[in-house]
């Protein structure tokens, strides 16, 4: 290699100076416009005729402080349900997606079952699944069937979300180019090994962002189990709100859910950015 050293030209130095000035200017504009926007928003809301009443029923510091411990306590139930349901959903989703890739005729019944499962549970509203499982399963009076509401809630959420997640996995598997499968099969890898070593690792990277999105949605939907008698954050807030005619506890609940989903959302962004960088390498 020849010895050539690079000294930045006057033109380049000028270009960089200009770039810095422009960056500083856009920072200032962003700050000022944000402040103005928030100011106007606050003025409109607090200036509205109903504001004093809304402030007392939704933003009462006293009610917030009183309800917070109970709402927070209930919220741990949401977190528990989420943490148990999430891995179960991943397993169910992956298994169903894999079953749908099996081509051998022996597996026909399994495959048909997997198709029926995704069709049914993707179509029925989650709330309905929860009600049907929550009230239906105990009514069966089966030996060994769970009766505990939290367990029933987890089962219902797993059934409902498992169908979604199976479709996400299937889309990921289908997105791996067929030539990859052909290349693996031509090396003598069986269907199973092709899936395991070639298709799934590539599919996995593509399904993580949509999966995380589904899980953010699941975090919120854990509150639906309140309908079958689980006393979680929403239910606690409801109890408080209906006895005191003050809705501030709902706000406390909303705040908790937001606090839980924000890290998940940032994590999703982080993963997306990382895979973007990887691809760029």
């Amino acid at each position: 290699m020849s010895e050539v050293t690079w000294v930045k030209s006057e033109r380049q130095l000028q270009r960089e100076r200009l770039r810095r000035v422009r960056a500083a200017r856009s920072g200032t504009i962003a700050t000022v416009s944000t402040i103005v926007f928030l100011g106007v928003l606050a003025a409109v809301v607090t200036g509205s005729p109903g504001w004093p009443r809304v402030r007392d029923t939704f933003f009462s510091a006293e009610a917030f402080a009183k309800a917070w411990p109970d709402v927070l306590d209930g919220f741990w139930t949401n977190v528990t349900i989420f943490l148990i349901a999430e891995p179960l959903i991943l397993v169910v989703g992956l298994l169903v997606a894999l079953v749908r890739t099996l081509r051998a005729p022996v597996f026909f019944p399994l495959r048909a079952l997997a198709v029926a499962y995704t069709d049914v549970f993707r179509g029925v509203p989650t709330l309905l699944v929860i009600l049907l499982v929550g009230f239906g399963v105990p009514a069966l009076d089966l030996q060994g069937a769970p009766r505990d509401e939290v367990t029933l809630g987890v089962i219902a959420l797993t059934l409902s979300y498992g169908a979604y997640v199976a479709e996400v996995f299937r889309a990921g598997i289908d997105s791996v180019h067929p030539s990859q499968r052909a290349a693996a099969r031509s090396l003598g890898l069986s269907h199973g090994k092709t899936m395991r070593y070639v298709v799934l690792p590539q599919a996995w990277r593509r399904v993580v962002p949509p999966l995380l999105n589904d899980f953010v949605s699941l975090q919120k939907d854990t509150s639906l189990v309140s309908t079958i008698g689980v006393v979680e954050a929403l239910r606690q807030a409801q109890i408080y709100a209906s006895s005191k005619f003050n809705y501030t506890p709902y706000l406390a609940g909303a705040l908790l859910f937001v606090l839980l989903t924000i890290p998940m959302a940032r994590f999703t962004d982080h993963l997306a950015a990382r895979s973007q960088r990887r691809r760029g390498q």
Partner: peptide, 21 residues
């Protein structure tokens, strides 16, 4: 068994089909 047959042959395609991961 196709897998057994393919074990004894190597095939290379026009597009390279290496595993990117």
């Amino acid at each position: 068994d196709p897998d057994d047959v393919r074990k004894r042959m190597g095939i290379v395609f026009q597009a390279f089909n290496l595993f990117p991961h």
